[in-house]
């Protein structure tokens, strides 16, 4: 088998079946683009999770005299209670860092955050309870902290930011699932279209195939041009899809979003490159298997 001869066969095959080749390119491109989008969305979610989870804190608010929570029984937390909570927190292996925010500090922070709002005038030091800000080693373990301190003496409430983010990630998960589902449908489409294309290409070249079999060409010699043809069009499709993903990421994400704030929380070109070998590998596998399967009938001796 000479390389030049196979290349010639591939070229003439593509030329004779151009419209089908084009449709395989496009369908492969769309399916891989959708799949890539889904996977990138998932990576985005993961990146964001990491980013936010590092900043997630569990806040344990202590009772004040004005606390309405039943647990407080109308009394402010005593110093002994505060100390006991702090010691317990520090003893927990799940806890990475604990810092205590006094009422005065909480008031300062509040004034700073709402400095442009008229509400500040009505708030006095002591209105905002003192709290423990707890940084967890593993942010998913927040339940351990919540359960241990929710009913502890002197604790008004335990708040955890994870709940808020959970909804957000739930939505991203749905988008991912939907996009991967669509991609799956498109991959089926692409596979069927490849099979049809090969069948048509084999039909167009049935004379050549007949003569090849007659003069004793090996099955691989007969298959090779078809497989290479499929690989060429399929890889063109993936290449275009990867290009579109990269471009989309640059235009929509990196330029459209606020870079300064979320820079570390956003996926970038590297994530596209990380995906690329898998997309190519998957499509190569599909193209080769589809070719082999579809050509069986033409190769039966």
């Amino acid at each position: 088998m000479k390389v030049g001869f196979v290349a010639g066969e591939v070229w003439s095959g593509l030329r004779r079946n151009l419209s089908m080749a084009l449709s395989v390119i496009l369908v492969t491109m769309v399916s891989m683009f959708l799949l890539g989008m889904g996977l990138l969305a998932q990576r985005q979610a993961d990146t964001m999770k990491g980013y936010w989870y590092d900043r997630i804190q569990v806040s344990i608010y202590l009772c004040t005299e004005n606390s309405l929570q039943a647990n407080c029984q109308g009394r402010a937390a005593t110093e002994a209670q505060q100390e006991s909570i702090e010691n317990q927190l520090k003893a927990m292996p799940e806890v990475k860092q604990v810092f205590h925010e006094s009422e005065a500090e909480a008031f300062e922070r509040f004034k700073e955050q709402f400095r442009n709002s008229p509400i500040t005038g009505n708030v006095q030091p002591g209105d905002i309870p003192q709290s423990f800000r707890v940084q967890l080693a593993d942010p998913t373990k927040f339940a351990v902290v919540t359960s241990q301190f929710e009913r502890a003496p002197g604790v008004a409430s335990v708040q955890d930011q994870e709940k808020v983010l959970k909804r957000f990630f739930q939505i991203i998960n749905w988008i991912t699932a939907f996009s991967v589902f669509l991609a799956g449908l498109m991959v089926i489409c692409a596979t069927l279209l490849m099979a049809t294309t090969i069948r048509q290409a084999a039909f167009i070249r049935r004379r050549e195939i007949g003569i090849m079999r007659l003069v004793g060409a090996s099955n691989w010699t007969i298959r090779m041009p078809f497989i290479i043809e499929m690989l060429v069009v399929a890889m063109l499709g993936v290449g275009l899809a990867v290009g579109m993903l990269w471009l989309g990421l640059r235009l929509i994400f990196n330029l459209g979003f606020n870079r300064v704030v979320l820079d570390k929380a956003l996926i970038g070109a590297n994530d596209v490159w990380a995906l690329t070998p898998w997309l190519f590998g998957g499509v190569i596998l599909i193209a080769v298997l589809t070719s082999l399967f579809t050509l069986r009938r033409y190769l039966r001796v």
Partner: peptide
């Protein structure tokens, strides 16, 4: 082994079968 066998046989048909 059929392809290798056929390399030793020539065949001609009524309809020529040229490309």
């Amino acid at each position: 082994k059929v392809p290798r066998f056929r390399r030793g046989i020539g065949a001609v048909f009524q309809d020529f079968r040229l490309l």
